[in-house]
Each structure stands twice: as structure tokens, then as C-alpha cells.
């Protein structure tokens, strides 16, 4: 039972990170029907930015929560700026082109960003400081849940609730949902669709940066290639849940995280990715639109 509980929490922790990144894939897909393959790199850039800022602040003598907050703010802004720019450079000029062109452009952008960070930084793994706060009340529950698991799950949940409120109740959120449902009609009600697309990239990138900081603190090291793996997994989560669906991305992330955690825990840790992709193949065979995909709504 204890082992089961540990695996369950580990799965939720992983899953909430997948969900944070999957939201970026699914929101962009909902509006542009485009798989933004450079999204994993945005997550990686978020983690690198946080590392650089945290190192600088630590050298200045700052510690604890203030480092985490400042590093997060800078990383979120920086990643959002990257997401915004990637859309303007790599996708906007191809808006009228066939579906294949932006896809190729996305893969190109992903490779470019990986190599750019490798050359600008290093190709080695860098140690990542644990930025997560050491809160007293967490010690008292540490027999039930590890502090970092708790912080990751709680932060992801809070961020996802904030996103839901934004999409559901604000004018901008309504415009985003309307644009995803019928772009031409959104224009006919006065929505500036270019602005909606930009904001979608900005929000998705910010979420990815938060995910990047959380997981880097948890794992303790990063390199230029972490975006590839996380991106593929999060993309799998988005497809699993039904690409284009926001609740689907969250559900897909959690299902994927749990499947990986239980699979590695009870069967073999050598097959971690096999569990993820086997699950994806099964879903695609029996429910091609994903768990919450269009056909089931």
C-alpha cells in the first residue's frame, strides 16, 4: 500500500508537469491546427533562464523564496517573449500555406533553439539548485507526501485553475475560445485574431516555463536537450486527452504520468517510454480523438 501510494504521488507529480506543458500544445492546436514542435524548447529555455537568474542572485547573496520568485518571474517573461517571437518568425508568414509547411518550420525552429542554447551555454548537464521553498508545515506531512511532490502538484493545480478562470470568465478568454471554434466568425464580431494567437503563444510559453522550473528543481540538473523528451511526452499527453481540448490536456497529462509511474514501479523501469507510447497507440486505435476529443463531446 505504501509503495502504491508513493507510485501514485510520483505519477501525479510527473503528470502535472506533463499537463502544464501539454496545455501549450493543445491551446495552439485549438486555434491554428498546428503542432508547435518548438514548445518543448520553450520549456527548456524557461529552465535555463531560471538557472542563470538564480545563480546571479545567489552570488549577490540572496537566498530562499526571493530567489525562486525573481527567477520564476524572469523565466516566465523570457519564455513568453520566445514563444511570441517564434510565432511571428516561424508560423505567421506561413498562415496561408499548406498544413505541412508550418509543421516543417516548427521542427526547424525546435532544432535551431536546441543548438542555439547548446552553443550559447554548454552541451553538458548543469546542476540545477533546488529552488523549491523549505516550508515548515511540509516537514510535518513529509511521511505522507514528499515536499517537492507537494509543491509541484499544488503549484500546477493553482496555475491550471488560474488558466481555467481566464478562459471561462475574461473577455480575452472568451475571444480565445470563440477563435478556436470559428476563426472567421470571431473576426466578424471584432476580434483581432492575430492578437489572440500571440496571446495564446504567450500563455502557453509561460505555463511551460513554470513546468521547466518545477521539474528542474525536482530532478536537479538540466541540459539543452531536456525539451525534446518533455515535449514528446507532453505532446503525447495532449493527444491522449484529445488535442485541442484544455481539460483533455490536463487529464492526458495525469493519465500519462500515472501510467509511467505504475509501469516503471511494478514492471520495469527500463521501459518508461514504452508505457507512454503503448498507451498512446492503444488510445489512438480505440479512441482516435483522444479521451476528451471532439467526437466524444
Amino acid at each position: 500500500m505504501n509503495y502504491f501510494w508513493d507510485l501514485f504521488l510520483g505519477g501525479l507529480t510527473r503528470g502535472s508537469i506533463y499537463a502544464l506543458i501539454a496545455l501549450g500544445y493543445t491551446m495552439v492546436y485549438g486555434i491554428l491546427q498546428l503542432i508547435n514542435f518548438a514548445h518543448g524548447e520553450i520549456y527548456m529555455i524557461g529552465a535555463f533562464t531560471a538557472l542563470i537568474v538564480a545563480s546571479m542572485l545567489t552570488m549577490q547573496g540572496l537566498t530562499g523564496l526571493s530567489v525562486l520568485i525573481l527567477a520564476t518571474i524572469v523565466a516566465v517573461l523570457y519564455a513568453a517573449a520566445y514563444g511570441f517571437t517564434v510565432e511571428k518568425i516561424a508560423y505567421k508568414p506561413l498562415r496561408q500555406a499548406s498544413r505541412l509547411s508550418p509543421l516543417i518550420s516548427a521542427i526547424g525552429m525546435s532544432i535551431f533553439l536546441q543548438n542555439y542554447v547548446m552553443l550559447a551555454q554548454t552541451s553538458d548537464f548543469l546542476p540545477f539548485p533546488n529552488l523549491l521553498p523549505q516550508l515548515n508545515f511540509l516537514d510535518s506531512i513529509s511521511s505522507v507526501i514528499a515536499p517537492s511532490d507537494f509543491i509541484i502538484i499544488a503549484t500546477s493545480t493553482a496555475v491550471m485553475i488560474a488558466l481555467t478562470v481566464l478562459l471561462k470568465f475574461t473577455k480575452m478568454g472568451k475571444a480565445m475560445r470563440a477563435t478556436a471554434q470559428d476563426q472567421t466568425m470571431a473576426m466578424l464580431t471584432g476580434v483581432n485574431v492575430n492578437r489572440v494567437i500571440s496571446r495564446t503563444f504567450i500563455i502557453g510559453s509561460a505555463l511551460a516555463a513554470v513546468g521547466g522550473i518545477l521539474i528542474a528543481s525536482h530532478v536537479g540538473r538540466i541540459n539543452f536537450y531536456i525539451g525534446f523528451n518533455a515535449g514528446i511526452k507532453a505532446f503525447t499527453a495532449a493527444v491522449l486527452g484529445g488535442i485541442g481540448s484544455v481539460p483533455g490536456a490536463v487529464l492526458g497529462g495525469l493519465v500519462l504520468g500515472l501510467a509511467e509511474s505504475f509501469g516503471t514501479g511494478y514492471i520495469s523501469s527500463d521501459y518508461e517510454s514504452v508505457f507512454a507510447f503503448a498507451l498512446l497507440i492503444l488510445i489512438l486505435i480505440f479512441k482516435p480523438d483522444g479521451i476528451l476529443g471532439r467526437s466524444s463531446q
Binding site: A175, Q181, L188, G190
Partner: peptide, 24 residues
């Protein structure tokens, strides 16, 4: 414009559709 085929936002509520009309 009221376009051909009406183009109601299918997954927005009736009220939200009207709010979209007042978007500007």
C-alpha cells in the same frame, strides 16, 4: 454581419455568444 449558416459559436453558451457580439 449575420453570415450564411448563422455560425453560432457551438460551445459557447447563448449568453456568451451575445457577449461576443458586444466584444468591442
Amino acid at each position: 454581419q449575420v453570415p450564411e449558416g448563422r455560425r453560432i459559436f457551438p460551445k459557447l453558451s447563448v449568453l456568451e455568444n451575445l457577449e461576443m457580439g458586444a466584444f468591442l
